[in-house]
């Protein structure tokens, strides 16, 4: 069964789910569909939710989804959990907190495993967000695990980034200092029913106040929530809405679109270039001998990479002949 762009644009759930699988599994034919979908993307509002394991992200995403549905918005959710580095398997458990939406046709939830990709997202996340976007989802929520500089990837993908912290974790604050401050458009202190919520909130506010914000520049608000009991979530949505308006105003939206385009292109290019280089080397029977040379320290990987890049790509890009490197040259 091949999936068509038409089915996706019509919002066909089965077709979309299969296309997402094919993209996640790197099936080449799936990319063809994405090519024709691409111009239909860019309409959805993308909201990132990140934070430490167990901080309540899924519970929060569930609440936000309910509020958005009440306003008649359709919602796509991409929930990412880590792949076990030892077995390659994963338990994708974010849905547990979201099953109240399982029968709602206005909500499409997709669980993804990181599959070894760093930065909190799976390699396929952007593609899958694009499919949801093309399906016509008004809002796409992306839940990613982690706190720290690793998470910067999400920043370029989402219009608005929510960072979830919980009270009483000194380490959390350390992580915030280590760079998450630049990521957050909105801070949520979830589990505010626990002791120390006020203290955590004040600490984050102090950190924010030390930053320099220009006239009219967005300053991240800090909001206490108890996602478990749906407390503070309506207030959170007010701030989300406020940031959405800010993010869609010029010059912010133009900058976002350019940055997202850059991430998209560079990510795809990176993958393609590596695939091409490796397949070039393999098809000339060069890869294994080179690795053997490297292992014996008879060559270095820096020089080899330079040569591969020069020979594999430069000539072709400049319109030169397809000039496969001779075995001896390496």
């Amino acid at each position: 069964m091949t999936v068509t762009a038409k089915e996706i644009l019509a919002g066909d759930v089965r077709a979309a789910a299969r296309l997402m699988r094919d993209l996640d599994d790197e099936i080449p034919a799936a990319v063809r569909v994405l090519k024709s979908l691409y111009r239909h993307t860019g309409r959805a509002y993308i909201l990132g939710v990140t934070g430490a394991p167990g901080s309540g992200k899924s519970t929060l995403v569930n609440r936000i989804t309910s509020l958005l549905r009440k306003r008649g918005k359709t919602v796509g959710i991409v929930a990412i959990d880590p792949t076990s580095p030892y077995t390659g398997g994963a338990i994708l458990g974010d849905r547990i907190r979201m099953q109240q939406h399982a029968l709602d046709e206005g909500v499409f939830i997709r669980s993804l495993a990181t599959r070894g990709h760093l930065g909190g997202l799976s390699r396929s996340t952007l593609d899958i967000v694009n499919v949801m976007d093309a399906m016509g989802k008004d809002v796409i929520l992306i839940e990613t695990v982690g706190v720290g500089q690793d998470e910067v990837e999400i920043v370029k993908v989402a219009h608005t980034n929510i960072v979830v912290v919980v009270p009483g974790l000194g380490d959390d604050i350390q992580a915030i200092k280590a760079g998450i401050l630049e990521i957050a458009d909105i801070f949520v202190v979830n589990k505010a029913d626990r002791e120390g919520a006020d203290k955590t909130r004040r600490e984050i506010e102090t950190m924010i106040s030390m930053g320099e914000y220009g006239e009219g520049e967005w300053k991240p608000p800090v909001l206490p929530t108890v996602a478990a009991t749906d407390t503070g979530t309506a207030e959170l949505l007010v701030e989300v809405e406020r940031h959405r308006e800010y993010a869609f105003r010029e010059p912010h939206i133009a900058r976002y679109r350019r940055e997202k385009a850059r991430v998209e292109l560079l990510e795809i290019l990176k993958t393609r270039l590596i695939e091409k280089a490796v397949s070039d080397l393999e098809s000339h029977g060069l890869l294994e001998p080179l690795l053997a040379d490297l292992a014996r320290k008879r060559k270095d990987p820096y020089s080899i990479s330079e040569k591969v890049v020069d020979h594999s790509f430069a000539l072709r890009l400049l319109g030169g002949r397809d000039n496969p490197p001779k075995k001896k040259r390496y």
Partner: peptide, 26 residues
């Protein structure tokens, strides 16, 4: 998971409709 499978875990109290909808989306 330990056998290398990606497990979508939905938790308790699932109706057949919820299970099949989830299976379709996933």
């Amino acid at each position: 998971r330990d056998a290398g499978v990606e497990v979508i875990y939905t938790g308790l109290h699932q109706t057949p409709e919820m299970i099949v909808n989830t299976a379709a989306q996933e």
